[in-house]
Design a binder for these strands. Structure first.
Length: 568
RNA sequence: GCGCUCAUAGCUCAGCCGGAUAGAGCAUCGGAUUUCUAAUCCGACGGUCGGAGGUUCGAGUCCUCCUGGGCGCGCCA
């Protein structure tokens, strides 16, 4: 089904053609309710090209524009805006259609893509911390949305499970490991032995040399070192799984850096052979002399000691994703500090002849109340596990206060949905590039653009249906007499206009903003329009609006990876 | 030094292809509940959109320069 926006845009385009005018932009939602529901700026755009009075052009368009049944007669306003106000009957009819549409009006993308989404990427032997929230939550939301839009999505967790830090870990394991501590809290013990080894290595050259040897042995496949490595990976993966379970994150594949390790020599050989890489100061490098911003920034793909680094790994990763996974699109949801690195990787991919669409999707940082990178009091990264536990705990406390009569199992369920939802929504509702200040009070507030506010709107709807105690059957006729009803219905119709915009520039916050406006429109409707106490046919009509609002809220939040409780 | 990025109300943040008088929430002040969750709603107050130029009929949005913050820049990832 076609959205109002698409329908009006098509009608305007037809009118332009009929009036002998060139194409000129689309139709947008009105910037202000005073100007109606939608607007076209075609006349203003054409005025420039044709050097003619925009209002005259608007008039010419209106003469051939037939919107009977859909809109009130369009008006020309201001400098030459054409304003459209939808007829209530048209909104009612569209809303009734949405009730019978599983996709809630959202069209599938015209061209289906095969998209590998690289997000999360925690490091083995290190705890997940706040720094992982944005990549994980953003990547997951984008995956859900792209998938809903009909793309074939492969979610890949590019785990940091290979690299020089394993020299430290293995040395520490052999010399400093406390088995009992490892049983109790594996990651904490791995971090401890890593840190202590690191300290010893900085002060003692002999340790430094021993660490290096352990790494070389690992890379050469020495059985003991390999099995230690394997065990640390397994322990870490278990830890990651716990976090992913709490966050409801699922991966299709988890190809760590180690997966690519045996492909690295061939990568370097190939690049040398094709002349893309060359030897410089004993290392194998790729220079980008023709790309001004990279001209002074060569990429090293084999160190002078013969070792490979993460650039080599990422080139191998590109190979795998394009050739084995057959991706035509790759989204890298990785922090901004790696911009230069990925520019190099993408430039190399281009030289190798890959035409896939690579997007490095960056994001800002999470700050503490002091406006500096969020840390614990002792200056450490805040462990993700602690943060999620605290979110649930705080949500639980609020629920206890507001609704103490709920059963224990309900409280557990609600606290989890509200707490985790609040953390995710707080992240996703803000523009991804800006740094944001982490605040429990704000994210768990029931007022404003927060998960609890949206969840509460859903809960109010469920409450109505519980009270009604009847099976919902969609009416075919909606009555939109009250302004609050029209406003709500129109918002519901606009879900389909909003969802696709998210992937244009990878901005889930556009969807979040929409859901907030929808919830707000619903609350206003809820205050103004009694549902169960109203007379038929109004009662059925209002129930239908509630039903649809509930479905859109649940689906919208689901696309952001957030669950809705039935009560709260 | 070069590159990327951010700067909008007292605070926290929206503002997608440039469109009309820049919007929310919090805070402050004032209203609304015999009512389906007041966990809400309605209203008031509050802004030279960091600064200066430029492009345009029109700039928070695009371009240039400047100021300030964050991040990155040859063998860590």
């Amino acid at each position: 089904m076609e959205t109002f926006q698409a329908l009006l845009a098509r009608k305007v385009a037809e009118a332009l053609k009929a009036a002998g005018l060139p194409e000129a932009g689309g139709v947008t939602q009105a910037t202000d309710a005073r100007f109606g529901d939608y607007q076209s700026n075609a006349a203003l755009i054409l005025a420039k090209q044709l050097s003619e009075n925009p209002r005259n052009i608007a008039q010419k368009i209106l003469v051939v524009l037939d919107l009977s049944g859909l809109c009130e007669p369009p008006t020309i306003a201001g400098a030459g805006f054409i304003n459209f106000t939808l007829r209530n009957e048209a909104i009612a009819a569209q809303t009734a259609k949405l009730l019978r549409d599983e996709r809630l009006g959202v069209a599938r993308a015209e061209t289906q893509k095969r998209i590998v989404i690289d997000f999360g990427s925690p490091n083995v032997a290190k705890p997940m911390h706040v720094g992982h929230i944005r990549s994980t939550v953003l990547g997951d939301a984008l995956a859900r949305i792209a998938s809903f839009l009909g793309h074939e999505v492969i979610r890949d967790n590019h785990i940091g499970d290979w690299g020089t830090q394993f020299g430290m870990v293995i040395y520490g394991w052999k010399n400093l490991l406390d088995r009992a501590a490892l049983e109790r809290d594996p990651i904490a013990e791995l971090v401890r032995i890593y840190k202590e080894t690191n300290e010893k290595a900085t002060s003692d050259p002999k340790v430094r040399e021993a660490v290096r040897e352990e790494l070389v042995k690992l890379q050469a496949g020495a059985p003991e070192n390999f099995s230690i490595w394997k065990e640390t990976v397994d322990l870490s993966m278990k830890e990651f799984e716990r976090a992913y379970q709490m966050l409801d994150i699922h991966y299709d594949i988890q190809r760590g850096e180690s997966f690519y390790s045996d492909r690295l020599p061939a990568v370097v050989e190939r690049l040398l052979k094709s002349g893309i890489a060359e030897i410089s100061e004993g290392a194998v490098c790729v220079f980008f002399r023709d790309i001004p911003e990279l001209a002074e920034k060569p990429a090293i793909i084999r160190k002078s000691d013969g070792g490979f680094n993460y650039t080599t790994t990422d080139i191998a990763t590109v190979d795998y994703r394009i050739q084995d996974l057959k991706a035509d699109t790759v989204w890298l949801v990785v922090g901004a500090p790696q911009i230069l690195h990925f520019k190099q990787i993408i430039a190399i991919a281009r030289r190798e002849g890959y035409t896939a669409d690579f997007r490095h999707i960056t994001f800002g940082s999470i700050l503490g109340e002091d406006r500096k990178l969020m840390k614990t009091r002792s200056g450490e990264n805040v462990p993700l596990r602690d943060l999620l536990d605290e979110a649930i705990q705080r949500a639980r406390k609020i629920i206890e206060e507001k609704n103490p009569d709920l059963s224990e199992s309900e409280k557990i369920d609600i606290a989890e949905k509200v707490g985790i939802g609040a953390v995710k929504y707080y992240d996703l509702s803000q523009y991804r590039m800006t740094d944001y200040i982490f605040s429990w009070d704000r994210m768990l507030s029931f007022q404003g653009n927060t998960a609890p506010y949206l969840q509460n709107a859903y809960v109010r709807i469920r409450s109505i249906f519980r009270k009604a105690g009847e099976e919902f059957t969609a009416t075919r006729e909606l009555n939109l007499t009250d302004a609050a009803e029209k406003n709500l219905a129109l918002k519901l119709c606009q879900f389909a206009e909003t969802v696709p915009t998210v992937v244009n520039d990878f901005r889930p916050n556009l969807l979040a903003n929409y859901l907030y406006e929808l919830a707000n429109a619903f609350h206003t409707f809820y205050e103004a329009c009694p549902v169960l106490k109203s007379e038929e046919p109004l009662r059925s009509s209002r129930l239908a609006l509630c039903e649809l609002t509930g479905r859109v809220l649940a689906k919208g939040l689901d696309l952001l990876g957030i669950k809705v409780p039935e009560k709260m």
